[in-house]
Amino acid sequence: MRAVLIAGVIAVALVEGCPLPGKEQARRLGVERLVTGASATRDAVLTPFRPVFRALDFSQRWSLFPVADKRHYRMVIEARPGPETPWQVLYRVHGPERAAFADVLEYRRIRGIWNPGAKGPRGAYKAFCSWIARVVFEADPRLREARVKMERVRVLPGGAGVEPTGEEAFAEVRRR
């Protein structure tokens, strides 16, 4: 009985973890119908086991740096006493500006919230911006505006460093 159960666990895990191309890739490869069918079959097979995957909140599709692009984001946190004053950089990743809360920002779980994914900012990004603005305002009562943004940087050939591209993204401003 145990051996049969284990065989079942392995089979379900392999079905759930089986990599299927996305819609776009399937269309490019001309296997859209096949992939749609396989995906529907997989969903049907996994339906009775979804509660287990949901309870433990996991998947057997693992990825570690699936996309290794030469363009990266670099987070910058700025603040200013008022709209008429220039922005003052409080924190920039690997920059000389290193606020007291840098260690917290760089802790992996917090980074997971503010680091943009392949599709853009993650679900809790706006909540993060509100929270870090509160931290900034509490640390310095003179500051009345805080801004979080992502600078776009490009890796130089041969890994010789990164250079800003001039682009910025996902800027969020919070006022006291």
Partner: peptide, 14 residues
């Protein structure tokens, strides 16, 4: 090389 130069993950400045 790109991953090691990602400011958000790199331990050392790129």
């Amino acid at each position: 090389g790109y991953v090691l130069s990602d400011p958000h993950y790199a331990r050392f400045a790129p």
